[in-house]
Amino acid sequence: MPVRRGHVAPQNTFLDTIIRKFEGQSRKFIIANARVENCAVIYCNDGFCELCGYSRAEVMQRPCTCDFLHGPRTQRRAAAQIAQALLGAEERKVEIAFYRKDGSCFLCLVDVVPVKNEDGAVIMFILNFEVVMEKDMVGSPAHDTNHRGPPTSWLAPGRAKTFRLKLPALLALTARESSVRSGGAGGAGAPGAVVVDVDLTPAAPSSESLALDEVTAMDNHVAGLGPAEERRALVGPGSPPRSAPGQLPSPRAHSLNPDASGSSCSLARTRSRESCASVRRASSADDIEAMRAGVLPPPPRHASTGAMHPLRSGLLNSTSDSDLVRYRTISKIPQITLNFVDLKGDPFLASPTSDREIIAPKIKERTHNVTEKVTQVLSLGADVLPEYKLQAPRIHRWTILHYSPFKAVWDWLILLLVIYTAVFTPYSAAFLLKETEEGPPATECGYACQPLAVVDLIVDIMFIVDILINFRTTYVNANEEVVSHPGRIAVHYFKGWFLIDMVAAIPFDLLI
């Protein structure tokens, strides 16, 4: 008679799926529990143990900040960024110097990925580790590398530091407007667009060049630039800015003055950032001319202004700041037409079709709590990747769950009947059967004279019903998954307890 339990259901295979997918890609990662103190490590794979030199037993239950890997060259700011990422709910990448158990130093890129439950609360953290440099290539500990984003994938490793954006290309926007319009339909740009040429040739750093990471940081200074100062900065030398009595002219307006920039070969870094931020506020060169004239017309309804409409929906549905990093990277690809469009465009503009998908598509409701890094690593669709929660398995109709209350009560009843059979069957065979043979035949009273025979008949009927119930009862397979398919249940029961239950259900007393 089957006594099969499996009270692990309803099970959740999400954690096993993450481990299996990460292991298949030869990654070095740990999984931490966000619900406990210090976000203790609950799993670390073999790749991480080989990377740091510690065994799994030495890593388990330690804080996922990996303070046991810190050393003299470990930056405090990087460690603080990892700790801050564990307090938030967004994906974050941090470069930090770690030390192995043998004392060797290596520069590592740590990717902190939160995993949320159905309520939107962070319950786990996945920390992925990628070695960037070994100890002989690690720089000085005073050099802070965590304020910069990861290198873009479309640049060669040897040319990542030679990417320079020439400031004269930004200063000569109005001069290039006529050349853009003359391109017409034969050019790649839309009317009114501004073409910015980027020099990728390796050259020595000069005062006129600005690194790509500095251009990325310009967006942080746009908020500090007032509207009046932006307007004066875009007017140009024809209309000098008016300053109040006793007030000095704005240095932001002076930063885009061609006369002032041409007199000296070098520009201050602050002026460069502010000038680029001011130019980015204009949607095209037409807006710059309109600002000089004193009238700013409404933005025209053409394809170039609607190019950012799908980007707005993608940004609203993005799951991490990696989408913004990807957008900034692609927006700086050289030799393309940049349409400086305000994100607050007309909502009635139709979304044009684009061959290049900048932001990841909208994630469906079932995966809105899973970050983009987890979705990318697992390579699963929205119909396959579940949320991290207890999910009731989908069972067929008329199927009994093996952990249901009805099955528990039924098993206790069958257990009592088995005990009765084990006690009274030998007793009936030894004593009652002998008395029946010696006594007179009682054929007239039937079952009324033999109450134990009636009980034995009921017990046999219950055993037959138990066999039928076992054909529709779920079970737990070797992978700790609840199986509810009727065919698989029948095959599993035939290979197991079916023969024993059938022999126990045969009414031998009635056959004798």
Results as ranks from 00 to 15, higher is better:
residue 5 R to Q: 08
residue 6 G to Y: 14
residue 16 D to Q: 14
residue 19 I to Y: 01
residue 21 K to V: 13
residue 21 K to A: 07
residue 22 F to N: 07
residue 25 Q to Y: 08
residue 27 R to K: 11
residue 29 F to R: 01
residue 32 A to I: 01
residue 36 V to A: 14
residue 36 V to T: 13
residue 38 N to R: 14
residue 42 I to P: 01
residue 42 I to G: 01
residue 43 Y to H: 02
residue 47 G to W: 01
residue 50 E to L: 12
residue 51 L to W: 04
residue 54 Y to K: 01
residue 56 R to M: 03
residue 59 V to K: 01
residue 62 R to V: 07
residue 63 P to Q: 07
residue 66 C to Y: 01
residue 73 R to N: 09
residue 79 A to V: 13
residue 84 Q to D: 13
residue 89 A to R: 14
residue 90 E to Q: 11
residue 104 S to M: 06
residue 105 C to N: 07
residue 108 C to I: 01
residue 110 V to I: 06
residue 118 E to Y: 06
residue 118 E to W: 15
residue 124 M to Q: 03
residue 131 V to L: 12
residue 134 E to Q: 07
residue 135 K to M: 05
residue 135 K to A: 08
residue 138 V to S: 13
residue 138 V to D: 14
residue 140 S to D: 06
residue 144 D to L: 14
residue 150 P to G: 15
residue 151 P to F: 15
residue 154 W to S: 14
residue 157 P to L: 14
residue 158 G to W: 13
residue 158 G to E: 05
residue 159 R to Y: 11
residue 162 T to D: 15
residue 163 F to C: 15
residue 172 A to N: 08
residue 174 T to M: 05
residue 179 S to Y: 05
residue 182 S to E: 06
residue 183 G to T: 09
residue 184 G to C: 06
residue 190 A to M: 11
residue 195 V to C: 03
residue 197 D to K: 03
residue 200 L to P: 15
residue 203 A to I: 06
residue 205 P to D: 12
residue 211 A to L: 12
residue 212 L to V: 06
residue 214 E to N: 13
residue 218 M to D: 03
residue 221 H to R: 12
residue 223 A to I: 13
residue 228 A to L: 14
residue 236 G to W: 05
residue 239 S to C: 08
residue 246 G to L: 15
residue 254 H to K: 13
residue 256 L to G: 07
residue 265 C to P: 13
residue 265 C to H: 08
residue 274 E to C: 04
residue 292 R to T: 04
residue 298 P to H: 03
residue 302 H to L: 12
residue 302 H to N: 11
residue 305 T to I: 07
residue 306 G to L: 08
residue 309 H to P: 12
residue 311 L to N: 15
residue 312 R to D: 14
residue 313 S to N: 10
residue 322 S to N: 15
residue 322 S to L: 07
residue 324 L to M: 14
residue 326 R to W: 05
residue 327 Y to A: 12
residue 333 I to W: 07
residue 337 T to S: 14
residue 343 L to W: 12
residue 345 G to P: 08
residue 346 D to K: 07
residue 351 S to F: 04
residue 352 P to C: 07
residue 356 R to V: 12
residue 356 R to P: 12
residue 371 T to C: 09
